[in-house]
Design a protein around this nucleic acid. Structure first.
Length: 219
DNA sequence: AGCCAGGCTACCG
DNA sequence: CGGTAGCATGGC
């Protein structure tokens, strides 16, 4: 099976997932792709991308609920929160000391952009933003043509033999982007496909790859 | 009760 | 460069 076949099979099997779960747009299953978000929505994606590091999105939703109850989903409102209040709000997502620090650093960076789209290198230079978080912000926040690789992506693609066990982030990202660039000429459509493929991989992994052995996910 | 979750940094050899 | 400890809560 080719990699693009996997994408099409997942799409047929699970249906369009409709990510990112933006609160302002009704959360999951919004059935629209995210190309042109407002600055507020882009920030919400970035916030979620940081909070979801090594955690489930259900935990992130709790943190976002807490922030919303404090009327603190915007950069300035979060900045004006007492540090302990911020940490307490994001406690459900884990690593709250680090993540509070990451979020505050990102806000300073985000404000400095003044609406400009950041480069991947600029994002990677931010404290607490690694490759996955950077691609998450670019793909789902800014609608850029950057595929996001996560633990589930690695697990599924290596288990199905598309990449080796020890394949690194850059290698997996390059493979997917190479294949999709060949299959989908229109950059706009490709962004939708990257968003959808990532979401489908998560759905599939949650179903079949949550614990070893991963035999049932052969597809 | 213990393992895992949509990672990243710091530090080691 | 590759490997690993540390970070922390919540769900199953």
């Amino acid at each position: 099976m080719e990699l693009f076949e996997l994408y099409k099979k997942l799409l047929v099997h699970y249906g369009a997932q409709g990510w990112w779960p933006l609160r302002s747009r009704g959360g999951y299953h919004l059935h629209e792709y995210l190309h042109t978000l407002s600055q507020e929505e882009i920030f919400e994606v970035a916030l979620g991308s940081i909070l979801t590091q090594n955690t489930t999105f259900a935990s992130v939703e709790k943190s976002l609920d807490n922030l919303q109850n404090l009327s603190a989903l915007t950069p300035h409102a979060i900045q004006n929160l007492p540090l302990e209040t911020l940490k307490n709000a994001i406690r459900p997502s884990g690593y709250f000391n680090q993540k509070a620090d990451y979020i505050l650093h990102f806000i300073a960076f985000f404000e400095g952009l003044e609406g400009r789209i950041p480069t991947r290198e600029e994002l990677l230079a931010c404290r607490g933003i690694g490759e996955e978080t950077a691609d998450s912000i670019l793909l789902f926040g800014y609608g850029m043509s950057e595929f996001k690789v996560d633990a589930y992506t690695k697990r599924i693609l290596s288990h199905l033999g598309f990449v080796g066990e020890t394949a690194k982030y850059a290698e997996i990202k390059a493979l997917v982007e190479e294949v999709f660039e060949k299959k989908i000429a229109d950059a706009h459509k490709r962004v939708e496909a990257y968003q959808e493929f990532h979401a489908l991989l998560v759905a599939h992994a949650k179903r079949y790859y949550s614990k070893k052995p991963y035999g049932a996910g052969g597809f």
